[in-house]
Amino acid sequence: KYSDMIVAAIQAEKNRAGSSRQSIQKYIKSHYKVGENADSQIKLSIKRLVTTGVLKQTKGVGASGSFRLA
């Protein structure tokens, strides 16, 4: 599940300011076997996790910027 992968990526990075979408994508692609549409799936999952309150956006708008666990 992409949401689990995103949470794992943010936990692994341990950046106080949060993790960027690009760094999350890079982590997921190197640690998991994902399909061609992974980028758009990650983007959608990040937006969903922010609206449900699992992630907090520290910089930027939408799916860009930095995110950390709430």
Rank of each mutant, 00 (worst) to 15 (best):
K43P: 03
A9Y: 04
H31F: 06
I6S: 02
D4L: 11
A70F: 07
K56P: 00
V50Q: 03
F67G: 02
N15A: 08
S3P: 15
S20E: 03
A8W: 06
T58D: 08
Y32T: 04
K43W: 15
I24E: 00
S45R: 05
Y27A: 00
V61T: 10
L49S: 00
E36P: 14
K47P: 03
V34L: 06
A12H: 08
K59T: 08
T52F: 08
Q41L: 14
S66H: 13
K43D: 15
A12W: 07
I46S: 00
A63W: 09
N37D: 13
G62E: 06
K1C: 15
A12P: 00
F67N: 02
K59N: 08
A8S: 06
K33W: 06
V34E: 03
A8M: 07
S64N: 13
E36M: 09
K59Q: 08
Q57Y: 15
N37R: 08
Q41G: 05
Y2G: 00
D4Y: 13
V50K: 00
K29A: 06
R16W: 11
A9L: 07
A12Y: 07
Q41D: 09
I10H: 02
D4T: 09
R21W: 15
V61D: 12
L49P: 00
S66W: 14
I42C: 03
S3A: 13
Q25R: 07
F67A: 03
S20V: 03
K43E: 15
L49T: 00
I10C: 05
F67M: 03
L49G: 01
S40N: 11
V50I: 08
V54P: 00
A70C: 09
V61C: 13
E36V: 12
N15P: 02
S30D: 11
K47H: 10
E13V: 07
G65K: 14
I24C: 04
A9S: 03
K1H: 11
Q22A: 12
K43H: 10
H31K: 05
Q11Y: 08
A9P: 01
F67L: 08
T51D: 13
S20K: 04
A17V: 08
A17N: 13
R16L: 10
S40G: 06
G65P: 15
R16H: 11
T51E: 14
S19G: 03
S66L: 15
S64I: 09
K26E: 13
L49Q: 01
A70L: 07
V34Q: 04
I28P: 01
E36N: 13
K14E: 08
A38T: 04
R48L: 12
G65A: 15
G53H: 04
D4S: 09
K1M: 10
K56W: 12
T58S: 09
I42D: 00
F67R: 02
L44C: 15
S30F: 07
R68F: 13
H31C: 07
M5V: 02
A8G: 03
L69Q: 04
L55M: 02
I42W: 03
A70V: 09
R48W: 15
